[in-house]
């Protein structure tokens, strides 16, 4: 049921002229893709700095709240650009992407990242004044930082794997496991 809905939605996107134009244009598509990947440096670079500070590895002598507050803005700007370019990339190749198991796992991981980020911020705002100058943050915050590093690393790995076609509906006709994994539709004609 949900697979059918996703498929129909993807087909609807795929039918729009701009999707095809973006998909087929060499420079535009590659630029959007490059911006998506290069902004990773801004967004995840800042995020890793914050997380590593909480773990006591980066900039241990600068107050934790100072790091988090200052690097938050560049991180969010980077994230916004990644988000927009990410949507464009999906829009350019909707059917194949929506039926990629890596893409689906990536979306779930992104939700996990968001929940983790929310909890991390809340815990931090509650307690930061008591440990701001400590080299390492308290356990609860440190776990949040480790989850953040782990989830985002998996997001990047899954994102990279979207490009590979091992489980694509188009090429796994007789392989039931792949078909199930990718949420293929029986008899689908577009990929």
């Amino acid at each position: 049921m949900i697979n059918e809905l996703i498929y129909d939605f993807a087909i609807w996107l795929d039918d729009s002229a701009w999707s095809t134009l973006l998909h087929e244009s060499y420079y535009m598509y590659n630029w959007v893709e490059s911006i998506h990947v290069l902004t990773l440096v801004v967004c995840l670079g800042m995020l890793f700095m914050i997380d590593l500070r909480m773990l006591g590895y980066a900039l241990p002598n600068v107050p934790a709240s100072n790091i988090a507050r200052r690097l938050n803005m560049p991180m969010l700007i980077g994230f916004a650009i990644m988000f927009i370019t990410g949507i464009l990339l999906f829009y350019a190749v909707p059917v194949r992407t929506s039926q990629s198991v890596w893409f689906r796992v990536k979306m779930i991981l992104l939700v996990a990242c968001a929940v983790n980020a929310y909890l991390f911020h809340r815990r931090m705002n509650e307690s930061v004044s008591s440990w701001d100058h400590d080299t390492k943050a308290p356990d609860r915050i440190r776990f949040g930082a480790i989850f953040s590093l782990g989830f985002w690393s998996l997001v990047v790995i899954c994102g990279r794997l979207v490009a590979y076609d091992w489980f694509d509906c188009e090429y796994t006709d007789s392989d039931n496991f792949s078909q199930l994994l990718s949420g293929c539709i029986a008899g689908q004609e577009r990929f």
């Binding site: 990947v37 990773l40 440096v41 801004v42 967004c43 995840l44 670079g45 800042m46 890793f48 700095m49 900039l59 690097l71 560049p74 690393s153 990047v156 790995i157 994102g159 990279r160 794997l161």
Partner: peptide
């Protein structure tokens, strides 16, 4: 490749800061 990207984020983060 993905690890290469992640390490690039670390390198880039350090450069930007």
């Amino acid at each position: 490749e993905a690890i290469h990207l992640l390490a690039m984020a670390l390198l880039g983060g350090a450069v930007i800061v």
